[in-house]
Amino acid sequence: MNGVSVSFDGFKAINNLSLYVKKNELRSIIGPNGAGKTTMMDIITGKTRPDEGRVIYDDMVDLISMSEAEIANLGIGRKFQKPTVFEHHSVYENLKLALEGRRKVFENLFFKLTSEDDDKIQEVLNTIALQEHYKRDAGELSHGQKQWLEIGMLLMQNPKLLLVDEPVAGMTKQESEHTAELLTSLAEKHSVVVVEHDMEFVRSLANRVTVLHQGSVLAEGDMDSVQNNQKVIEVYLGE
């Protein structure tokens, strides 16, 4: 992202924000409420159009003029802040809908599940530890399990870049630990951007951290250097 700005009714939600994420990097983004974390994700996924700036993906693709579906099909997967899975569909069905490719109407009308599809679904079920729950309606899962299912749905799409918005909100300690492991292992094959409030969780990811404040980057570095940064302390603790 380079020099991106967006404002709503005169309020600058994102102000000349520049952020670069490398391939297979795990990046955490923290910042106080209203720092523009979620808006930034909205811009990358095409939900919100910025007033200025460019969003370049994979060294050459400009995402600004593309639709949400086009961006998703480029390999950018997003987990929403509030877990959004299909509550009335089974866990298996949720993953089936997320399978990579076959996005056209008629492909879906005459869709047949191949054994490779099934293998892929089983593999993801394993990764997100929901093998035993595959038949249950997603709505019956615990909050943490829904978050994992949503991450699983992202994995089904074989994304290159995963945008994960507050993955451990409302999770128990054990669930958070499992999530940290999950995200770290994912970063071996995918670029992962995590937005999170939970400092302990961000520390457990042990990676590069970006601090956002009032729509722009305040500091960047590993967790220790960021925590000792004078500006960051001011923003978090108040002047």
């Binding site: 959004t84 299909f86 069905e93 996005r103 056209k104 009308l109 005459f110």
Partner: peptide, 26 residues
């Protein structure tokens, strides 16, 4: 069909269908 699954998915959570890369309007 899987399209039917998508149809009820749109009913329940249209944003997620879009984020999965489907053109819900079609």
């Amino acid at each position: 069909s899987r399209l039917g699954s998508l149809i009820t998915a749109i009913r329940d959570s249209e944003g997620r269908v879009r984020a999965l890369g489907y053109r819900d309007e079609y």
